[in-house]
Amino acid sequence: MTRFTVNGRPADVDAPPDKPLLWVLREDLGLVGTKYGCGIAACGACTVLVDGQAVRSCVTPVSEVAGKRVSTIEGLAEEGPQAAVAQAVQRAWIEAQVPQCGYCQPGFITAATALLAQNRAPTEAEIEAALTNLCRCGTYPAMRVALRRAVELTQKGQG
């Protein structure tokens, strides 16, 4: 039994300790917003926050998050110290109409939220270093617009 919190709620999971957090979220907890893309931490579609840090849940054994706070796309803008930043990021993402197929977007939005929650004025280089997720549709140009807007909204304290 592994105990942790997901989006502010306690979770008790009866899964093998080496089962990746990604599959615990999707199969045991029914939280399917976090996506499987590669299974080797290369694409970032599975990005979640663990105690506020962006981690790739496909290579994170569930035992590693025992006692920790996990935030997924379902709760990112609802609960936790990053919620206001996540609201700003999501608003900017909608304004810039970023998604195409949308599959990689929860991972990007989560990674962007983690960055902006820790650094309200990231440089272009800091953004590029933090957002190493992969998108096959090629939404990067719209994402750049959204990221600039999200920084603006975060600095103004608007979600």
């Binding site: 399917v32 917003g33 999501q90 109409q97 949308g102 939005i109």
Partner: peptide
């Protein structure tokens, strides 16, 4: 014109369901 694509809000909020999310 380019009104907000109908699919975008759900995709941003992570509630759009793909084949792999079918339950």
């Amino acid at each position: 014109t380019s009104p907000l694509r109908l699919d975008i809000p759900d995709k941003v909020r992570g509630v759009a369901r793909f084949g792999i999310d079918v339950r």
